[in-house]
Nucleic acid binder design. Structure first.
Lengths: 244, 244
DNA sequence: CGTGGTGTTGACATAAATCAAATACAGTGG
DNA sequence: CCACTGTATTTGATTTATGTCAACACCACG
């Protein structure tokens, strides 16, 4: 109970596998080292080899890459329950940079503790890796969106996807959700200019599909919106786990 | 020797870790089930849960997603030495579709055999997973390119990246490489129209940077091209392995 | 010799970027 | 309380990159 209270990760994993007491205990121990970061300060620098990962427990983060010309491409957003830097810890591979969008709370996870946890509870390891794999699938979906959808559909798709992910941790539903992103964040994620993002948001609002305003996303016609955005839950709805 | 002759994978992995005789033997056994596929016919259907992966030994493949409106986004190309469907085998997750670009040869790898191999030789498992992780990094780089680079830089970057990957398996260098892709493939990978791809290729050719013609890519000024494309090898040049 | 896939080029249409400027608003220091 | 600052949003005018449509050349292949 108290565990669930401070761990959206547990909530998320529970949606897919029933966690045993032992597994809950292991997860709980992974949450020992609580840390906070303030909005705007980057957490992990591009190329920095990570000895440490984080489990985000509250707030939003984005992972991004900066190009030589200074433009930024946001690769993904992380919401409570998501891992930050999991792959770079497991594979010592350099990754993108992370920046907290608001002040956040996260649990610091040392490589050794994570590997211990994985060794103790393979089922848990599988669940975590599977969730991470889902995140990768979303990056692919972003790629498809940026390459082949127009601005309006891209925006609609992103807002829907964030809604689905938030729903998994109880922070949103088909009505909408609170969202601390600025229009600049959306622009950098969608490969658009901030000005154009603003116009697109207006169009979506005026056509009665969705409103993004004052830190809140409100779906006005969820069915029509999913239709319009060609939003396919399949790549999120993985059923039937996992490692053989 | 005979192993190396038919396995670009071994060549690729050898660039990062010195493989023992035992490990080479395990790899060799993974290559037992030789199969061929003809160009154009898809291999793995979008959403099909994979019981089987492939190690590509000759030819080119692309992985892609088709959208509701029929447009296609190529997510990545696979060249000899690359795995196809590794993630879907390990995590039973649905993935993209695969299509051979030319007639190809591949070794079929059953899930159970792969897991056995991983259990026998953890170092090999690490090397393979690390190579796979490198591929994921390239998908991210594509995302950045499509989102934030103009068509010319995107094209230049893709051609350079393919060159680097081919060099790892001895199929290309800083002079150029053979490339069976059509301009349609390039268009679908870069999120452009085929017509525009043609124009961009002309520009690159006329500015003396690179020529793509008759199934061959020729770099005319490698240094200037990497500069122009903001091509950073860092995301390919992972040094210092791997799993702790 | 047709025929279909591929490449090439031109004319035109359009989505999105860029430039510019006004507004709103929260925080900050006087 | 107020002026001041910076950030976020909004909107219009214009430019630019890229897509779409159309036509033709080339070539391997049946």
């Amino acid at each position: 109970m108290t565990v669930e209270a401070h761990s959206p990760l547990i909530r998320k994993l529970s949606a897919f596998v029933a966690l045993s007491e032992a597994e809950l205990g292991v997860l709980d121990r992974l949450h020992r080292r609580r840390r906070t970061f303030v909005a705007g300060r980057y957490m992990v620098h591009q190329g920095q080899s990570g000895q440490v990962a984080y489990i985000l427990s509250s707030g939003w983060v984005c992972s991004y890459k900066i190009q030589a010309d200074g433009t930024r491409q946001i690769v993904d957003f992380q919401i409570p329950g998501d891992f930050l830097g999991l792959r770079s810890v497991l594979l010592r591979t350099s990754d993108h940079s992370f920046e907290p969008i608001v002040n956040i709370e996260a649990a610091e996870v040392l490589t050794s503790n994570l590997l211990d946890a994985f060794a103790q509870t393979p089922r848990l390891a599988t669940a975590i890796l599977w969730a991470a794999s889902r995140d990768e699938a979303m990056v692919v979906e972003h790629l498809v969106g940026i390459g082949r959808r127009d601005a309006e559909a891209r925006m609609a798709h992103l807002l829907l996807e964030l809604g689905s992910r938030l729903a998994l941790v109880g922070m949103g539903g088909k009505k909408g959700y609170d969202c601390p992103l600025t229009q600049y964040h959306l622009a950098d994620a969608l490969g658009l200019s901030a000005v154009h993002v603003n116009r697109i948001l207006r169009q979506l609002r005026e056509s009665g599909l969705v409103t993004f305003r004052d830190g809140h996303v409100a779906f006005h016609d969820y069915g029509r919106l999913t239709d319009f955005a060609d939003f396919d839950l399949e790549y999120l709805d993985q059923t039937g786990p996992l490692l053989a």
